[in-house]
Design a binder for these strands. Structure first.
Lengths: 191, 191, 191, 191
DNA sequence: CATGAATGAGGGTTCATTCAT
DNA sequence: AATGAATGAACCCTCATTCAT
């Protein structure tokens, strides 16, 4: 419980960016320290070691993302409306935390994630699975393994995010709408 | 002019598997040597260094995949048929080279890939882009950035592959058919 | 002119205990600060650095021990009586400063002791040497290098102290008497 | 099981010398590597880490010393003769392995010694304890805690060794004989 | 005065790479 | 050609020391 919240968050921000850009193993503690403009030793005042840092980061953003997806979730609406809610929240979350979703996706399943991180992650998956499973029951979502459907949604969305950040595309309303529609068509049941 | 094709390929096979499973940075040369049942020094007879090895591997499988996609490509058929061709070849390629596509996807864009690898990769993308662009002209593919559509296709497919390899799912004909249909619905133009 | 004698002595007490228990190199400044219930920085108000601290401590207890040995030393008595005096003072000193003699013995000769510490220590040795040398002249002490005899005395005594502190033995009058007798027999001249 | 026994033993020799001279914590791996004229990394081909190195060393010399004490031990002789045997073997062992006994004595009980090392060490102590206990039964050894007696013997002997190595004394037959006599008088029963 | 957050030099350790065999 | 022992640069991490509060 450090009094200087800024420094701790500088470290987390730099770590998030570098882990997302280069991956955990290719990111050194000196790199993070340099980017966060702190001494290398300072990182160890806030995080026991590199693995604790990456797990903290992972769990933090999984939690934050989960919270954002669940907030005001339209429990009683149609699958389409629920999907819209989820997709919009993904967009919002990405706007607020630039590298977070990409970091989560690329580091999920890695050897250095602890039990707690894995558990939290499967919690996140569960939200999406529940949405899909309920939609399948209702006949609004196609009969395919939920994991595969989730991959399609995330895959498309994250690739979009990369293109926007690298300025190959502009984040227009039309574009976001189009990708949402595409992903929805991938998961919805067609008659 | 490799005198011993087997040993070089043993190394490449082991490297592919380990890079796909653990990532480039978490895979050590002794690990590869051990898996390939050669001495660590032997790897340096065939590859100048670790980065050359990973670039060789990357380019090799990008080329092979490109070749497989292009072979007997139904230039004159409908987008749906072309899509079917591409999807079938992805399945076939994955069957023949277990970790290759996953390796390519997870290592694409990494800091250690050289210009040549990046170029080859964009060549691969071009095949898919051309297919999508032509389909868009014809009004058979939806008007969305091709890169985003490609991500959806790959994302869904690779996730499927993981689930099958981890034996969470069985590779039934129905399943493959369903994922193909889902991906197609994501990219095709809906009236 | 220390304004706060208590805090400085808290630090010295904690340092003595920890140096004796773990050794100089395995004892960290934060450990000492924690044990003394002061901030780590506070230690540097009283001691320029860790080496100054250990040298201060070393010299302090060497001086104190020397003082105790010399006080009321029976200059004119027999070697046996002089020995008894010295042995009793060792017992008394140990009772008053639990870890001090063990600290001195284990840190004597260490690389971080400065010239002054070494000099003071040899001063301490001198007292014992003078006693032994005079005893040899008188024919009451055996003809052996004084250093070896001192080692026997200290060795036996300190081992005894350890056993008592670890509660493997109880500090009975008989026990102390027995060890004194044993050490005396080691150094005295036998006819 | 390295083929190059010399290099492994160079490392052990250097480590023994430096641990004895400076202690475990003050001895760095680069110091050992430099003294042994090997690269720092080479040490890790032979020893998993620094603690394994020190435990290996400790156990090796405890075993060797134990073997030397036990070999041709005069089980049926008087305590005096048994003591002579033990003392002579200490001398011989020290001649053959310069720093070994001092290293054992100063590192015994340290926090980095593992269970196996402690067990082996107590085995060594047992030999001396058995000798002393049997002597007490016979009335040839004085009634004092064996540990205290052992300390006297070792203390005197090791101090002697130091003096000889630092060339403050010469290892004459008379000197060794005198110290043996002194130690014997410390432990034997006087009527 | 007292503190403890911050620092960075230096330790233990790993591993890409070399080279004698 | 093939090996794996040897190396040392560079990693993660600790801790003596400083300094703003």
């Amino acid at each position: 419980m450090p009094t200087n919240r800024t420094k701790r968050e500088d470290i987390l921000d730099s770590a998030l960016k570098l882990f997302a850009e280069r991956g955990f193993d290719a990111t050194t503690i000196p790199m993070i320290a340099g980017d966060a403009r702190v001494g290398a030793g300072t990182i160890y005042r806030y995080f026991e070691n590199k693995e604790v840092l990456v797990n903290t980061l992972f769990q933090h953003y999984v939690q934050a993302f989960k919270g954002m997806l669940e907030e005001e979730y339209p429990q009683e609406s149609s699958s389409r409306e629920q999907f819209h809610h989820l997709f919009q929240r993904m967009v919002q979350f990405t706007n607020e935390h630039a590298h977070a979703l990409y970091f989560i996706k690329t580091h999920n399943g890695a050897y250095f994630l602890n039990e707690s991180s894995r558990k939290q992650f499967s919690c996140l998956w569960k939200i999406l699975r529940d949405f899909l499973d309920k939609g399948k029951e209702r006949g609004e979502i196609r009969e395919l393994p939920s994991l595969a459907l989730i991959a399609i949604i995330f895959g498309g969305f994250l690739e979009l995010e990369q293109l926007i950040r690298s300025e190959e595309l502009e984040a227009s309303r039309d574009l976001l709408h189009g990708v949402e529609e595409s992903c929805w068509d991938a998961v919805r049941h067609h008659h």
